[in-house]
């Protein structure tokens, strides 16, 4: 007996696969609709609601939100005290991003180009492990590390390097009684907390640079630093940008670290938290929340203009 040219469908899975084969778009539609709805309604929807809120204002006497279109709330952002918060946050986010990029690059480069087998596993563990433990625990641990009687101060005393800490604490703008109450402490903890978000995309980008590309560069006469500047960096730049989006926007929005570590000066995240929660000034909180979005749009536009995505 010869087998038939068409095999009989056995059960629902065979028939369903047949339906999807005849209607390929059906499967795509089924797969993509739930995440699209989630993204559209929950993400973009709430973003639109936020934008809407920022065009409302608050009645200064009754504290009630007036649901009328106005730019008054945005104008409030330009008050000296609010502008101060924005500038402080942007400077901090920029410093944190730059420090993360500089620290992350050698680690990511090593992991992408040299680490093999067990060392690669160790790298992933080392980078990811801190992400598994509670964020608050880590921040409080840092408070202890950076405190006046903390392990860092103790180690500095033992090695007679306390003058370095004192030097940092005497820099204008970074003053504090100890590192844990200085903006420098805030900076250190931000860098520590967000570093993995810079390393991972960088490593992914560097991994995609084929070895032959580096060899071709050397073959054509490039020195190590020329290879770095003309080949490695441009090709890794999309990863660096992706990482910097993480570190930059996470710093822009964080409201916990500045509360626990530093001189209690306010950042955008903390301000939004306070305006929303304590003050009940939702419109101003919304207007503040729009600032990081605008900054990111400007940043990405500039990066694109500079050719950062040419290698994509």
């Amino acid at each position: 007996m010869t087998a038939p040219a068409i095999l009989p469908a056995k059960g629902a899975a065979d028939r369903l696969t047949g339906v999807f084969w005849r209607q390929p778009r059906l499967l795509l539609l089924l797969l993509i609709t739930p995440p699209l709805l989630w993204l559209g309604v929950v993400y973009l929807g709430s973003l639109a609601a936020l934008l809407l809120q920022s065009f409302y204002s608050i009645d200064e006497f009754s504290g009630v939100v007036k649901e009328e279109f106005t730019l008054k709330t945005y104008a409030e952002l330009f008050r000296a005290q609010n502008l101060d918060i924005i500038i402080r946050t942007v400077v901090m986010a920029t410093a944190v991003t730059l420090a993360c990029a500089v620290l992350a690059f050698p680690i990511a480069y090593y992991a992408a180009r040299y680490a093999k087998g067990h060392w690669k596993a160790a790298f992933y563990l080392g980078v990811m492990l801190p992400l598994w433990s509670s964020y608050l625990v880590k921040v409080y641990a840092w408070k202890l590390i950076l405190a006046k009687e903390g392990i860092l101060g103790w180690a500095a005393e033992g090695t007679h390097t306390s003058w370095i800490i004192e030097g940092i604490l005497s820099i204008p703008g970074l003053e504090g009684s100890s590192l844990s109450t200085s903006p420098f402490g805030t900076f250190v903890v931000f860098v520590y907390i967000w570093l993995p978000y810079m390393i991972l995309p960088m490593q992914a980008a560097l991994e995609r640079v084929p070895n032959s590309m580096l060899e071709a560069s050397a073959d054509l006469g490039a020195t190590q630093s020329q290879i770095f500047r003309t080949v490695i960096l441009p090709l890794a730049l999309p990863g660096v940008i992706a990482g910097s989006i993480f570190t930059f926007s996470l710093t822009l929005g964080d409201y916990i670290i500045p509360q626990i570590i530093g001189d209690s000066s306010r950042f955008i995240g903390l301000t939004v938290y306070q305006l929303q929660g304590t003050a009940g000034n939702t419109p101003l909180a919304a207007a503040f929340a729009v600032v990081p979005i605008l900054i990111m749009v400007i940043y990405l536009t500039l990066a694109k203009r500079a050719g950062a995505f040419d290698a994509l």
């Binding site: 084929p210 032959s212 071709a216 050397a218 073959d219 054509l220 441009p234 050719g307 040419d310 290698a311």
Partner: peptide, 27 residues
């Protein structure tokens, strides 16, 4: 390698994707 006066045509060509053809050749 960079001081040897020999040049290589690589198996996968290894052209730099972020540069145009002219800049690749002029590299």
């Amino acid at each position: 390698p960079h001081l040897r006066n020999v040049n290589t045509v690589f198996q996968d060509y290894a052209l730099f994707p972020h540069m145009n053809v002219r800049d690749n050749v002029a590299y």
